[in-house]
Design a protein around this nucleic acid. Structure first.
Length: 414
RNA sequence: GCGGGCAUAGCUCAGUUGGUUAGAGCAUCUGGUUGUGGUCCAGAGGGUCGUGGGUUCAAGUCCCAUUGCUCGCCCCA
């Protein structure tokens, strides 16, 4: 065990782990493309205020989980803890208001200084989608449909359920918030210490507490849907109808609350019970006020993000790696011929491995370990006659093939 | 930030009430096979037992501290 370890909460990604990540990202890019989303890559760090102003002053992310540091020029910058604020900032910086509606997708690392545990790291990866400038419920439906599609294409949808709620517009939310605070204050002595603190900072969060005593109180608490005004109610109904028409199943969860402050109206979460404490695989909602709040032109927005590590853990077996063709020089004298042959085949689109050093047996072993389907053996006799010995490693059959005919003989392995 | 569990070979793990030289499987390497892999057989290398201190004639084993990992709380994707 070496004393040099990766920094707490960070991991080296290699072999199957990174293949899982790539698999998630490439499926996502393909599907997002079908929905008309184009990729955006915003910087991995932003001016601190981009996050501090938008995520909510009382959220844990802002108050204690951000990687914030000062640059040599004296600016305060922060490693991004999530993706939406950066996209919103880009929307403003690049003057994109003229081009709405805009559909962006992204993927990349995010940073939060949390205590690591299963499905939770300090550097983690998200894929996400943002739809900007579409105020109507069809936007919500499309964005959720995209999420549903990616989960189905990754073959994880069976382990996941969609939960849906409406946080209403600003007016509804304020009205409900006041009623809820009154109710919870009246039942304060029954609440857990944590929830009493939540009552001060973020009262809606009490609704999704895991504490049994809190849950008991919450069952008799006023329900969010009862306090939605007509506009919010109609909007939410339209979203539900739209999803039903597309055959996307969902469960209403009046206790579903978003962690970040910029959300309104639709809130949704795709959750699983297969990941221990970290049940949320993909989550998002509508954030109509965000861009205006950041100083841009009032622009509707809705989007979501999903944890790539969490998705990777749910993934079944990966598609098998491509099987290479192994070029095997019998001895040192044939190495340059073999090298040239490998180069030629690679140039013509084949996946070719060539063993480094060792006798023929060693190189065959290596070919076998790489799961090569054929070995091309290049020895003294072969070089003299301008042929190679083509051995099928699954069957052990081998034949002699003229060098010049190799591409056509190997075509099915390309 | 709070609580529980764990730390022995590259990996997964044994290691008895404290007792002589710390083991196994897998992996690696060598040989059986000087132009033929997978299977098989024979053999080899590889450990400051996370770190520091303490108790003891004696510590991988007991105690304290510390670091790391891990699971949960919190938070969240």
């Amino acid at each position: 065990m070496s004393s040099l370890q990766p920094v707490r909460g960070t991991h080296d990604l290699m072999f199957d782990d990174i293949r899982r990540h790539r698999h998630v990202q490439s499926k996502f890019a393909a599907i997002a493309g079908r929905y008309g989303y184009t990729e955006i890559a915003t910087p991995i760090f932003e001016a601190t205020e981009v996050f501090a102003r938008t995520l909510g002053d009382t959220t844990d992310i802002v108050t204690k989980e951000m990687y914030t540091f000062e640059t040599k020029g004296g600016e305060s910058v922060t490693l991004r803890p999530e993706g939406t604020a950066g996209v919103a900032r880009a929307f403003i910086s690049e003057g994109l208001a003229q081009q709405t509606p805009l559909k962006f997708f992204y993927s990349g690392p995010m940073f939060r200084h949390e205590r690591p545990q299963k499905g939770r790291q300090r550097q983690f990866h998200q894929i996400g989608a943002e739809l900007l400038g579409v105020p109507g419920p069809q936007g919500d439906v499309e964005v959720i449909a995209l999420a549903d599609q990616i989960l189905r294409d990754l073959n994880v949808a069976g382990k996941i359920t969609l939960e849906l709620n409406s946080l209403g517009d600003a007016e509804s939310r304020l009205a409900y918030r006041n009623v809820l605070i009154d109710f919870l204050t009246a039942h304060c002595e029954k609440l857990s210490a944590e929830s009493r603190e939540r009552l001060e900072k973020n009262p809606l969060r009490v609704l999704d507490s895991k504490d049994p005593a809190d849950k008991e109180v919450v069952t008799s608490a006023p329900k969010f849907p009862d306090y939605l005004n007509q506009t919010s109610r109609d909007f939410f109904k339209a979203v539900q109808d739209g999803l039903t028409e597309l055959g996307i199943a969902f469960m209403l969860n009046p206790a579903l609350v978003r962690g970040l402050d910029y959300y309104s109206h639709t809130a949704f979460e795709f959750t699983t019970d297969a990941l221990g404490a970290q049940g949320t695989v993909l989550a998002g909602g509508r954030y109509d006020g965000l861009i205006a709040q950041m100083g841009g032109p009032p622009t509707a927005g809705i989007g979501w993000a999903a944890g790539v590590e969490r998705l990777s853990m749910l993934l079944g077996d990966l598609p098998p790696l491509a099987r290479p063709i192994a070029v095997i020089p019998v001895g040192p004298t044939e190495e340059s011929v073999a090298q040239k042959l490998a180069h030629r085949l690679r140039g013509n689109g084949f996946n070719v491995d060539i063993g480094y050093g060792g006798n023929m047996g060693k190189r065959m072993k290596r070919a076998n370990k790489l799961n090569a389907n054929v070995a091309l053996i290049v020895g003294e006799d072969e070089v003299k006659q301008a042929v190679v010995t083509l051995r099928h490693l699954d069957t052990g059959d081998q034949t002699t093939v003229a060098m010049a005919d190799l591409e056509s003989r190997l075509d099915l392995y390309r």
